[in-house]
Structure formats: C-alpha cells, structure tokens
C-alpha cells in the first residue's frame, strides 16, 4: 500500500521518470485501497511487474535490477535504476518492549502491544487506565489510527464522565482490621512484584502525631482485577481475595468432602 503511495508521489514530483514495482501479491485491503493502486498503475503509469527480483548490482553508476515478469511467461526483465527501494514490513518500535514492561501492559511476540480483547475491548489494555492507539498495537495506516485514537479518547472520557469508578466485586484486600493502626502485613512486598497490574501500593502506618511506624502493602481497588496471585504470594497471609478467602475456600472444600 505505501509502495503505491511512494511511487505515486515520485511520479508527481518527477514527471518524466519511470517507476517500477516488483510484487507477488498486492496487499491493499480496505475501502478504496484497490482503487488507489489501480490509479497508480493506470493514471500515473507506474509499472507493476509481478515477479521476484533475482539480483541487484551496480554497472556504470546505475543499479541493475534483474527480475522476471511471471505474467509474461517468466520473461527476463532488466531495469537500469537510479534508486532501489526495499518495501520492507512494518515492525514495532525498538523501545516498545521496555515501554510495555514499564507500563505493565502485555505485548505479543512481535513486540506490538496487546489489546485486552481483540473484538470486545480493542483499545483497552489489561492494565486499567492505559489505552492503545496507532502503530504501537499493530502496523496501521492513518484512517485506522484515527479511528482507534478516537475510540481510545472516548473511552478515557467515559472513564472521567462518572463521579465514581465501577470495579469488579472480586478484588484483593490487605487486612487493616482493628486496632486501626494494625496490619499483619510484614512489608516484604512480594505481592508488589507478583501483581501483573501494578495494583499494590505502599502505605505508611503513622501514629497520631504523624510518626511513620512502618510501610505496608495496600491494594489499589481501581487497578486490581482480582486474579489473586498476590494472595498466594503473601507469606504472612495478610491479603485476601474477597469471595475467595482461605476460610471461605476451606469451608467449601470441607462441605464438598463431607
């Protein structure tokens, strides 16, 4: 697709020049895209040749491109070119992996960021409050990027339009039962490393005169998705997943086995 655009722009700038495109399959899927390629071929007379290039070498200051035209019975083609452009694939940004790890969002094996659900949540990430738009998610052209960015912006607005956030009922809670300054949390923060959503925060327990006694874990209820990984990690059993606390599960198992 961008090859057609390049060729077209080149022909518009340099009128008496020739442009050749070697291709196997033209991937121009989308509204009006095939018409665009046809326009490049028919109106701007870009020469599209179906076949692979076998060799590119230099001769008398020119680049000689050797190829075959498979639509003309594999006829040999030799073009004396001033410039050869490789139409390579779109790839992700080299720093995307680092960014994804910093934001705690998931990415695929090509280091494009993953959406929460390909059909139902295409602009959200698995981490609350982080949305995707554009070529960070997959190679995209401008119309697709604009649509995705509009969707992401409206998701953000929907988030801010309400006075209160809605959340899942099942979330993890670090116990802070009576007395008010008390928590069994030992402050090892194993849960912080285990949490895939960065939902564990550090909270300081202070005396009445503001002296910090110690720092304990606290679950941000807006970010927690309720997976419970922190619960299993907690050495002092200070985190419980609401609805799936150890006591509740024990009671369930006891009933099931009796």
């Amino acid at each position: 697709m961008y090859t057609a655009k390049h060729a077209m722009l080149y022909k518009h700038k340099v009128h008496d020049a020739e442009a050749y495109v070697f291709y196997m399959d033209i991937r121009a899927g989308g509204k009006g895209y095939d018409e665009f390629v046809r326009r490049a071929i028919e109106e701007d007379s870009v020469n599209y040749i179906r076949g692979r290039v076998s060799r590119v070498y230099e001769r008398n200051g020119k680049l000689i491109v050797h190829g075959a035209d498979t639509l003309l019975g594999a006829q040999q083609v030799e073009i004396e070119a001033d410039m050869v452009v490789l139409a390579t694939a779109g790839i992700s940004n080299p720093g995307s992996e680092e960014l994804a790890q910093k934001l705690h969002i998931s990415y695929d094996k090509y280091r494009f960021f993953s959406e929460a659900h390909p059909k139902l949540r295409p602009v959200e990430t698995n981490t609350g409050g982080i949305f995707l738009a554009g070529a960070c998610q997959s190679p995209k052209d401008i119309p697709d990027t604009v649509s995705q960015a509009s969707a992401a912006a409206s998701k953000v607005l929907a988030l801010f339009s309400r006075d209160e956030l809605t959340r899942e009922p099942v979330i993890a809670v670090v116990n802070r039962t009576a007395p008010p300054l008390f928590s069994t949390c030992a402050g090892c923060f194993m849960c912080e490393t285990a949490c895939p959503y960065h939902a564990i925060e550090r909270e300081e327990i202070k005396t009445r005169d503001g002296k910090v006694i110690r720092s304990v874990a606290r679950v941000n209820p807006g970010l927690c998705q309720g997976c419970g990984t922190c619960v299993a990690f907690c050495k002092s059993k200070s985190i419980d997943l609401q609805g799936y606390s150890n006591e509740q599960v024990y009671a369930e198992v006891l009933e099931l086995l009796s």
């Binding site: 990984t229 024990y250 086995l257």
Partner: peptide
C-alpha cells in the same frame, strides 16, 4: 468436586494441603 478460582495464581500450597487434610 470442582472448586472455582479466578486464576491458578490464587491457588496456594495450603489449599492443597487443606484438601488432603480434610480427606
């Protein structure tokens, strides 16, 4: 007897031991 959890990440050693202890 199926006991449902949100995620296998929630499943702790003591849940397994407790099940064995409860028979």
């Amino acid at each position: 007897r199926i006991v449902r959890f949100p995620c296998t990440g929630r499943i702790d050693y003591n849940l397994l031991l407790k099940a064995l202890a409860l028979g």
